[in-house]
Amino acid sequence: MNASAEGEPIDILLVEDNPGDVRLTREAFDAARINNTMHVVTDGEAALDFLFQRGEYDDSPRPTLVLLDLNLPKLGGLEVLETVKDEPELSCIPIVILTSSAAEEDIVRSYELHTNAYLTKPIGPDEFVEMVRSFEDFWFTLVRLPDDGER
């Protein structure tokens, strides 16, 4: 599936506990005109519940892409990443780390756990929008993602 601004809306799971970063991410995706439905959870346990379709998320859609912060309450982003990538039914969902951490050990560990990309959040809103536009060009224009029926 190639998802783009003109195509079918994609389901994105944003795992982010900072309300300001949630707002900025939504605004950046809107400004980049990415046709999406963004689902937001604010901690690692809720992320796993959403992905495994448990509890209040038992009817949640399987996301096309996960944007995952590392510094989360209840269960950290690296633990979420490891759990998802170890689950055959979920492992093909692209997970992009979107975090303020530029620590080399976080970057290395994320790739060891099979993240698909590691992005450090820009400081300013204009830079954030530009990063999302570049992200859109790559992930939703060039990259082929599996159809929902193939996962």
Rank of each mutant, 00 (worst) to 15 (best):
M1N: 13
N2D: 02
A3Y: 12
A3E: 01
E6Q: 13
E6D: 14
E8M: 13
L13G: 08
L14V: 05
D17V: 04
D17N: 15
P19S: 02
A28F: 03
A28L: 01
F29E: 10
D30K: 15
D30N: 15
A31W: 00
A31F: 01
A31D: 09
R33M: 00
I34Q: 14
N36D: 01
H39R: 00
V41P: 13
T42N: 12
G44Y: 06
A46G: 12
A46R: 14
L48S: 09
L48T: 12
F50W: 01
L51D: 04
F52T: 08
F52C: 10
E56N: 13
Y57T: 05
D58G: 03
P61L: 04
P63S: 12
L65D: 08
L67E: 07
L68Q: 12
L70F: 06
L70A: 09
P73R: 10
K74P: 07
K74C: 09
L75I: 07
L75D: 08
L75S: 07
L75G: 08
E79I: 00
E79D: 15
V80W: 06
V80D: 11
L81T: 07
E82S: 15
E82G: 13
E82Q: 15
E82V: 01
T83G: 01
V84L: 01
K85P: 05
D86C: 03
D86S: 15
E87H: 14
E89R: 15
L90Y: 05
S91N: 06
C92E: 10
P94L: 06
V96D: 02
I97S: 06
T99C: 05
S100R: 13
S100L: 08
S100A: 15
S100H: 12
S101W: 02
A103P: 02
A103N: 11
E104M: 02
I107A: 00
I107Y: 02
V108L: 04
V108G: 01
V108T: 11
R109K: 14
E112L: 10
N116A: 03
T120N: 02
K121D: 08
K121T: 05
P122H: 10
G124Q: 08
G124Y: 05
F128W: 14
F128M: 13
E130V: 01
M131P: 06
R133K: 14
S134K: 10
E136I: 00
E136A: 14
F138P: 09
W139H: 10
F140L: 09
F140C: 13
T141L: 04
P146H: 13
D147I: 00
D147G: 07
G149K: 05
E150Q: 14
